[in-house]
């Protein structure tokens, strides 16, 4: 894929070397435009070593000392190419970030593929956390790096730095990349476990209507009208008389979580409390609806509904 040429002014901007270019969504292929190379401290020491060897060659008039010095100098140069090769061609693409609650470490996943036929060794990835990976030829790997989250809402990853000192550690090649792949941060659930609010926003009556479900609840003496398959045949076989097993349905109460009913002094505290209720309600398997000023999500449960509600809180 070819990228649009960069205007000279942007090309020379210093920040490009450290924090990367403007965020993009798509996969980034590491090319000479993205990869920067500078000698490491060890590389500079290596230059001193080369100078020393050439000096020995000079003082002792020793051509082999010169030759070894020049060989090391050439190796120094060739290593620049190898350093570039260590990163060149790698394709990095942000993968779908998993939403988290504020305060948790935000996981950003990236898919790194090595399209070449050469393996890559020791590619370091740095966001806030660090990771070092190796990629075999034509291999793709998904890595997850973490960055702390503080505020609810969309949070962009910082600069992802892909770097390598392979092969000799004399140079560090690095590519600062910024991606437009925001992570959704839900509000932090409140700590205290308050009881669910009295239902108010919904049309349905609160409470539980008991009905036959599939949760085994107990055994009672057979009554007419009980289904034949509910008879406790094992008890009957033991001569304990005819009993029926009865089942209770999953509680089907509907809960309305209303912003107005959430305690708290300000917006964030209320959202935080709503978030706590949402988490608890989902875990309890309740059907719940969410009411925010200007938004109303009818009661439901399941992962999709849960996500929708949390997203509504995050982006409110």
């Amino acid at each position: 894929m070819s990228e649009a040429a960069l205007p000279l002014k942007q090309r020379l901007k210093l920040s490009r070397f450290f924090s990367g270019e403007a965020p993009t969504a798509g996969p980034i292929v590491l090319t000479q435009r993205r990869v920067f190379i500078l000698p490491t401290q060890r590389g500079l020491a290596f230059v001193l070593l080369i100078l020393l060897l050439v000096l020995i060659g000079f003082v002792y008039n020793n051509n082999l000392a010169y030759l070894l010095g020049f060989l090391l100098a050439s190796i120094f140069f060739v290593t620049i190419l190898h350093s570039f090769k260590a990163l060149a061609g790698l394709t990095i693409q942000p993968a779908r970030p998993q939403a988290v609650f504020a305060g948790q470490a935000g996981p950003y996943s990236f898919q790194i593929s090595n399209p070449g036929s050469q393996p890559r060794f020791a590619v370091d990835l740095t966001l806030q956390s660090e990771l070092s990976i190796s990629l075999a030829a034509e291999q793709t790997q998904i890595v997850t790096l973490y960055q702390p989250t503080h505020q609810r809402g969309w949070q962009l990853p910082g600069t992802l730095t892909v770097s390598s000192t392979y092969p000799l550690g004399l140079f560090r090649a690095w590519a600062p990349l910024r991606f437009d792949s925001p992570l959704l941060v839900y509000p932090k659930p409140a700590n205290q476990q308050l009881p669910f609010p009295e239902s108010g926003g919904g049309q349905d009556k609160p409470g539980q209507n008991r009905r036959s479900g599939d949760e085994f609840d107990g055994v009672r003496v057979y009554q007419r009208g009980d289904a034949i398959r509910q008879i406790h045949w094992k008890a009957f076989a033991k001569g304990q008389g005819v009993h029926s097993k009865y089942y209770s349905g999953a509680s089907s109460s509907e809960l309305w979580l209303d912003y107005q009913q959430a305690p708290g002094h300000h917006l964030e505290e209320r959202l935080s409390q709503l978030c706590r209720w949402l988490v608890d309600a989902e875990q309890a398997g309740l059907r719940y609806g969410l009411v925010l000023p200007g938004l109303r999500l009818p009661p439901d449960n399941g992962a999709a509904h849960y996500r929708n509600c949390l997203q509504a809180l995050a982006l409110f």
Binding site: F70, L71, S74, I75, F77, T79, H82
Partner: peptide, 13 residues
């Protein structure tokens, strides 16, 4: 790496 470096080393030499 050494083989790739030799030509350059010889030129310098």
């Amino acid at each position: 790496i050494i083989l790739q470096s030799l030509p350059l080393a010889l030129v310098l030499f």
